[in-house]
């Protein structure tokens, strides 16, 4: 069964939103709503809400990164102080807790930030090659809807897009 990619560009969010709502309500054979991707020039949580619940899991990376950074820092620092026995400082113990906590705190943040960004790249699937159906208008002022459907459903989908004043519809047959 051959699959078609269809990209429709809309002039504003309202039209795109209406198109999404209709697609969501409809039951077209050979089209799954999860295969709908919305491309927009700005971050827009209200519009994304019409897509329903889609997950973002970056925060778990953050939690792991921060804990990992902090624990590693304290272990490594205190461990190296313990091993470097010649480093006695009068007036302070060899492993001074307050001083080590300062560095632990810094590493806690460092780990948090780094792993969060790693998580972002993994969750957002970046870096990636751009999909073939990409219009640079999306980075200017238009909203794009990209769907993957079976060839049989393509016409129906296209008619829905046209109904909602899509400016342009690109289509590509692919696997």
């Amino acid at each position: 069964m051959s699959q078609h990619h269809i990209l429709a560009l809309f002039n504003n969010f309202d039209e795109a939103e209406a198109a999404v709502a209709e697609l969501r309500a409809s039951t077209i054979k050979g089209f799954s709503f999860d295969d709908l991707i919305m491309k927009s020039p700005i971050e827009h949580p209200e519009v994304e809400s019409v897509l329903g619940e889609r997950s973002a899991n970056v925060q778990w990376f953050t939690l792991f990164g921060a804990l990992f950074g902090g624990i590693t820092a304290f272990t490594l620092i205190a461990g190296s102080q313990g091993n470097f026995f010649a480093q006695l400082k009068g007036g302070k113990p060899i492993i001074p807790i307050p001083a080590d906590l300062v560095l632990t705190y810094e590493m806690f943040i460092l780990g948090g930030v780094y792993i969060t960004v790693l998580g972002f790249l993994i969750c957002a699937g970046l870096p990636a090659r751009r999909s073939k159906l990409y219009s640079s208008n999306v980075s200017e002022d238009q909203v794009g809807l990209l769907v993957k459907v079976e060839a049989s459903a393509a016409a129906t989908i296209k008619s829905i897009f046209t109904k909602h004043q899509a400016l342009e519809i690109q289509e590509e047959a692919g696997k």
């Binding site: 272990t75 490594l76 205190a78 461990g79 190296s80 102080q81 313990g82 091993n83 006695l88 400082k89 009068g90 007036g91 302070k92 113990p93 060899i94 492993i95």
Partner: peptide, 20 residues
């Protein structure tokens, strides 16, 4: 290794020279 060293000699590492 460094962790076990740390745990074994913890009290030694927490001594404050010269007062205690």
């Amino acid at each position: 290794m460094s962790v076990s060293n740390m745990l074994e000699n913890w009290s030694k590492f927490r001594h404050m020279h010269p007062v205690d």
